[in-house]
């Protein structure tokens, strides 16, 4: 039995794994990664080996192996959907597009520091519009169309969006536009390596139905694994 830990900036994900997921846990990291790691280890007792990934991977004492999220996602993805060619992960701080060849990382790109290409973008905008994330997703998925939001910068986008609100545009169309803007940004990042189908959308992004809809709009068919948030943790577990 292997414990796979994915210590991300927003959440720490853990799986107890023996070829399938036996148990899993999700803990808010909230700037206290050590605490989150400990909690995960306690919740998922009964492992013999341990592997870690994510930005806090080096903090996991006793991990037999630490690998980067990129490699972990690639491994994990082939567990969930072996045919996958491209993995898209929209994370809180980082977004990545990973291209696979024979189950291995062939190429990958990440957003440059800018928040406009990350989940943070949506959170910021939701905040500015006083919406909770579930409300945001619900609204976006019910939009009739998407307003175009073109700023490449989250700060500028915020102004642009508030100005759309001022113009009396529908809130649902605006939030759908926000999702579209983010996905177009991902498309721009991914175009550097060329996105190929089938595409696996994982991480926390798939929990937002509006984002899923935008992904489908831009990329056509997009696969979503059963446990999208645990792809990295499973990948870590698979690495030992």
């Amino acid at each position: 039995m292997v414990l796979g830990l994915d210590v991300g900036s927003s959440y720490t994900k853990g799986v107890l794994f023996d070829g399938t997921i036996v148990r899993k846990t999700l803990i808010r990291t909230s700037f206290k990664p050590r605490q989150a790691i400990e909690q995960a280890q306690q919740e998922l007792q009964g492992y013999a080996r341990m592997a870690a990934t994510g930005y806090g991977r080096e903090l996991v004492a006793g991990a037999e192996k630490t690998i980067t999220e990129i490699t972990a996602f690639a491994r994990g993805a082939s567990y969930f959907e072996p045919s996958v060619r491209t993995i898209i992960d929209i994370g809180g701080q980082d977004s990545k597009v990973i291209k696979l060849k024979d189950g291995h990382v062939d190429r990958f790109v990440m957003n440059d520091r800018c928040a406009a290409g990350t989940g943070n973008f949506i959170e910021k905008i939701a905040q500015a519009l006083s919406l909770s994330m579930p409300e945001f997703g619900e609204l976006a998925v019910n939009a009739g169309r998407a307003e175009t939001i073109d700023s490449l910068c989250v700060v500028m986008a915020e102004t642009e969006i508030l100005s759309l609100v001022g113009e009396g545009k529908r809130l649902e169309d605006i939030v759908a536009g926000v999702c579209d803007a983010l996905v177009r940004r991902i498309d721009g990042i991914g175009s550097q390596i060329g996105i190929e189908e089938p595409i696996l959308f994982c991480g926390g992004g798939p929990l937002n139905p509006g984002l899923v809809k935008s992904m489908k709009r831009v990329f056509g068919n997009v696969l979503i694994p059963a446990d999208p948030q645990f792809v990295g943790a499973v990948g870590a577990a698979l690495s030992v």
Partner: peptide, 10 residues
């Protein structure tokens, strides 16, 4: 002028 439809209220 940032992009198409970029003429904001601001």
């Amino acid at each position: 002028v940032p992009a198409p439809m970029g003429i904001t209220e601001q």
